[in-house]
């Protein structure tokens, strides 16, 4: 069997008495879109924070691309190819869309200890940044300050910044959060177009999106993966129905 791109093994994280991750096991293959679903408070955002390095687990191991990253600093994980989008839009508010993307390109190109050349006019930043914006449908909105973008556009830019890092694995924390049906459809289309070129860990409440996009689904309840498999297997799983899908349907 091929070594998975990401392996999460026995990860535990407690806040006070509550275990947000209670021995999570997860494996994501290269290029796979792996959805994690579960009720609110199941520990989905905690899991993303642990993988991206924002939180350090109390126990367990996280292996990415053959390297143990369990305790590695977050910026290093990002440079190693783990990019994330945030559940609550997290952009640089005073920068334009283009400036946000250019900062991401700059970060991907290595360290930023370059003190002389004007970054704003640098074509080696601007051109790839424009490409990224075009890819997420923001080509015409480059000069707009992020604060003036519509919600759906901000969500798209979130994905764009992650893509600008040319990651091996995208961690998507509810990319459709707060979107109307039109924007959501556009987002699904965008993510669908990325399938195969980059592995994705998709946390999402929108079940249409999940069943449309995911190659595999894991169900997280109270910090534990209670089921994992292909979408139709998960849909048929009785325990999942009881624990989660039942209440949603």
């Amino acid at each position: 069997m091929v070594e998975p791109l990401l392996t999460v093994a026995g990860v535990i994280k407690r806040f006070g008495g509550i275990a947000a991750s209670d021995g999570v096991d997860l494996a994501i293959a290269a290029g796979e879109c792996h959805a994690v679903i579960g009720p609110n408070g199941a520990g989905k955002t905690t899991l993303i924070a642990e993988i991206s390095g924002e939180l350090l687990p109390d126990a367990g191991r996280i292996v990415f691309d053959g390297a143990d990253i369990t305790h590695g600093p977050a910026p290093r994980r990002a440079r190693a190819g783990l990019a994330r989008s945030f559940q609550v839009t997290c952009l640089i508010p005073s920068f334009t869309a283009l400036e946000n993307a250019m900062l991401a390109i700059q970060a991907r190109q290595g360290h930023s200890f370059r003190f002389w050349r004007a970054a704003r006019a640098d074509p080696s930043l601007k051109e790839p940044a424009m490409e990224v914006l075009a890819r997420v449908g923001l080509g015409g909105r480059a000069k707009v300050p992020v604060g003036a973008l519509a919600h759906g556009e901000q969500r798209a830019l979130e994905i764009g910044l992650a893509l600008a890092l040319e990651p091996r694995l995208l961690l998507l924390d509810e990319p459709m959060a707060g979107m109307g049906p039109v924007d959501a459809a556009r987002m699904i289309e965008l993510l669908d177009g990325l399938k195969g070129s980059v592995a994705m860990l998709l946390v999402e409440h929108d079940m249409d999106a999940v069943f449309r996009l995911a190659d595999r689904i894991s169900v997280l309840v109270y910090g534990k993966v209670i089921a994992s498999g292909r979408p139709e297997e998960v849909r048929a799983d009785a325990e999942v129905k009881r624990a989660y899908l039942g209440e949603a349907a």
Partner: peptide, 11 residues
């Protein structure tokens, strides 16, 4: 402006 975002970008 946004430390969290900078870290997520690898800065």
């Amino acid at each position: 402006w946004n430390e969290r975002r900078a870290i997520a970008l690898g800065i």
